[in-house]
Design a binder for these strands. Structure first.
Lengths: 250, 250
DNA sequence: CGACACATTGACCAGACTCAAAGCTAGTGG
DNA sequence: CCACTAGCTTTGAGTCTGGTCAATGTGTCG
């Protein structure tokens, strides 16, 4: 049976296939996963802190973000997620959610029961390894963000996030020509970067004034990639996008 | 064959056994892992950014920390690790190290080849799941730290780290009586919290003055646990210490 | 005793925050 | 089709938390 180019999980399959060649049988098993597809509105909580999910959610279209709240309305966004991601895969092995997950803009997601995933990983240990790897890349991205929030200036942080968002979307063939979609409010960006929306606004203005990048109505345009990379000290290793960096023996 | 109470990996085995009952065969397989034990001096880099390790390191005694450097000597410490941890387990599935790992104070570590670990996880899928879970707890700790660095005040951050260090050591039966070991310099703490050593020093002084906690010559004494927890908004879920929170079906 | 690393304190500074007001923009409903 | 609204963006003025720089204190180890 040939790959189904219209299958809802095709982006996910393509991503796994980029890590290591996916056998036909594994691919078919994924295509036959029982899924429930839902279209969600913006700001819809998919899972919340304290939940004990019995399913995972795979993003098919749109964006999601993980976040945590503190008192006085303080919020920290922990990560942004794009099509092909399974942001709550961790619930497969950790009983309780330690954070929440919500859509950013309207999004389409596929729900897969933990049981189905467990069956799949039991049948295809190589697939289990790929999913494990996905969660490790996730962790690596947290480390990248931690360095930024802890040790970079506001301008460096914004520049760094711009670089990351472009590179990640480019890897999924969702961006090219130094343009990509950034459908977040400036408050979202601020909560991701550990800043205030007011300050993020000023930084974006300065980046525009300096001709490095422009962010307007959900679209990011990068004018001077090299300068932006240098300013942010951006190095994409932490995103682990290159399949060939994976140990050969896997 | 009964468990060997003197085996160097006993702490690691005890930790896994706390997640889910470890079968005798799996336990014996771990005890028979070929390991190389080394005692390292303080500030010794175990793996560095850019390395492509072919082995993992399991901490037997002492502390280690992960860190990343930026220009102008800026450093962000990403995590602290204690006996039983395998801080570079991620190298099993990610080819390239995206950060460095070094000892904090003298430490004893056991090196295990990736090959041995792969053999083990192939033979015992349940063990693979436990190791996967370990890396997920790791990621959860990063999220916990991110919230602190991004959204907590300096005092809240220090208080939060004190709570975490005590709870984690207590879980390993390395602490009790509101006292535990914190063998880091104030500069280490600052680099972990996204602050400067000078400011950390002032915060510690204030916490001492307010009678909440005292940190002196490597020992932390907590005087008012409840107040410290309240000040830090500390909630230990993110450490996933309780085995019974693990999904039953695993 | 001397050297070194770490802790502590003071004085001053600045990057980012707060508060508040005004301008946009995309939807919505009449 | 336009007025209205709600949410988001932009800007200014003033403040403050935490940073910088520099000096002094403390403790440990050879």
């Amino acid at each position: 049976m040939n790959p189904d180019p219209e299958h809802p999980l095709r982006l996910f399959i393509r991503k796994l296939d980029g890590i290591a060649a996916l056998g036909d049988d594994a691919r078919q098993a994924i295509e036959q996963l029982p899924i429930t597809v839902r279209t969600l509105t913006s700001r819809h909580d998919i899972v919340q802190l304290g939940d004990r999910p019995s399913q995972c959610c795979l993003i098919l279209a749109g964006w999601a973000c993980r976040y945590m709240l503190l008192d006085q309305g303080r919020r920290q966004i922990l990560s942004f997620h794009m099509p092909g991601d399974i942001p709550d895969l961790l619930s497969l092995h950790l009983g309780v959610m330690d954070h929440s997950l919500c859509t950013v803009g309207p999004a389409t997601v596929a729900f897969v029961s933990h049981k189905s995933v467990r069956d799949l990983t039991a049948r295809f240990p190589a697939l289990a390894a790929m999913l494990w790897r996905e969660t490790l890349v996730d962790a690596s991205t947290f480390r990248g963000w931690m360095v930024g929030i802890g040790r970079r200036s506001a301008t460096e942080r914004v520049a760094h996030l711009f670089c990351e968002l472009y590179v990640r979307q480019q890897a999924l063939q969702l961006a090219s020509d130094w343009r990509c979609s950034v459908p977040f409010t400036q408050t979202d960006l601020a909560d991701a970067l550990g800043l205030t929306n007011v300050h993020v606004n000023r930084v974006i203005r300065d980046l525009r004034k300096d001709g490095l990048a422009t962010l307007r109505t959900g679209e990011l345009v990068i004018h001077k990639w090299q300068e932006l990379v240098a300013l942010a000290e951006f190095d994409a290793v932490y995103l682990h996008l290159n399949a060939h960096e994976t140990p050969a023996e896997v």
